[in-house]
């Protein structure tokens, strides 16, 4: 038996006041900006994955329709997820119908547990489930304090809705178009486009200021970037890390400069038969001054790309 609309509104209102009360005491809402009507973004800080505040380094946010809310990435701890939920509740009493994960990295997904509840779908790339399974043990061990209860691997939420190709989500009055991408930043990258505002959420397919981390394929990523650059109707871009921009092409060009330099340097080194260790020291350094967190990320990128290009 479905409850009537007025009943649902009343329930939502009760839930709103109850949650507003409980969150006001223990969870200050995450700071969000309204980028466009109904589009809210929280910009994370550029910190290392083992630094203080490492659970708030990715860009997160939500889109509000007339029927329900979609949350896009939830941060690197259940704590951050709750603070994001509190921010949602400050703006609307509508239910959260979708939690969308742009990929399976720790700084984007650990907050998902804060949104578990009736009727919330957890959506991601078709490869997201396997990606999270691979990482489950590592997350529970290395990010124990970011889970509730601490170290509980079951607080890592498995997706309930897998995207292959594209999928549309109707929030009422606006439609989100999700697109699953081939191997690039990871093997489970998903972008989100809001047609009403022209906002593109790239997830970690776009890094700004912070050095891109390559988990999947540098060459695959370059190919994906050239497709992203051709997407029509993009007025706002929310990268996975770094400042929001209206200039998608410019941001991609800058990112591509790093990826291209890395690929070219490593190809040349492999042609000479250089050992990986020497290549880690030398490759890509022309790009060094353009990026933050270089030492934390670049050596691993070289190791990954070297091992992939060894077999192209």
């Amino acid at each position: 038996m479905l409850p009537g609309t007025r009943f649902r509104i009343a329930l939502a209102a009760i839930a709103f006041f109850m949650s507003a009360n409980s969150f006001a005491s223990s969870h200050a809402p995450l700071e969000v900006d309204e980028l466009a009507p109904g589009v809210f973004v929280h910009v994370g800080a550029h910190k290392a994955l083992d630094a203080q505040g490492h659970d708030d380094i990715a860009n997160l946010g939500f889109v509000v329709g007339t029927r329900c809310v979609a949350v896009i990435d939830t941060g690197g701890s259940v704590r951050t997820g709750r603070a994001l939920l509190a921010a949602v509740r400050v703006r609307t009493a509508l239910p959260v119908c979708h939690v969308i994960s742009t990929h399976g990295h720790v700084d984007h997904v650990l907050g998902n547990a804060a949104f578990r509840g009736d009727g919330t779908a957890f959506t991601g790339h078709a490869n997201l489930a396997a990606s999270l399974e691979r990482s489950r043990e590592l997350f529970a061990r290395d990010y124990a304090d970011d889970l509730e209860p601490a170290g509980d691997a079951s607080a890592i939420v498995a997706p309930t809705n897998a995207v292959t190709g594209t999928q549309q989500l109707d929030l009422g009055g606006r439609t989100l178009t999700l697109r699953a991408w081939p191997l690039s930043h990871t093997d489970a990258d998903l972008s989100v486009f809001d047609d009403a505002s022209g906002t593109l959420w790239t997830g970690d397919l776009l890094f700004r200021e912070r050095l891109p981390a390559i988990e999947g394929s540098a060459t695959g990523w370059l190919a994906v970037d050239s497709e992203l650059a051709r997407l029509p109707g993009v007025r706002h871009v929310v990268p996975g890390h770094g400042a929001i921009t209206a200039d998608l092409a410019g941001a991609l060009t800058r990112q591509d400069a790093y990826l291209r330099t890395l690929v070219d340097d490593i190809r040349a080194a492999l042609k000479r038969g250089d050992a990986m260790q020497d290549v880690i020291v030398k490759a890509g350094h022309a790009q060094r001054r353009d990026w933050q967190l270089w030492d934390e990320t670049h050596p691993r990128n070289v190791a990954r790309v070297y091992q992939a290009l060894e077999w192209e």
Binding site: R134, L183, D187, E215, G216, S217, L270, K271, R272, G273, D274, R304, Q307, A308, E310, W311
Partner: peptide
Amino acid sequence: APPSPAAGGTPGEIRLRGAD
């Protein structure tokens, strides 16, 4: 560690690269 994204291909394939 699970197999990396560079995993796959035909086991036993060999690449040889000589220095200049």
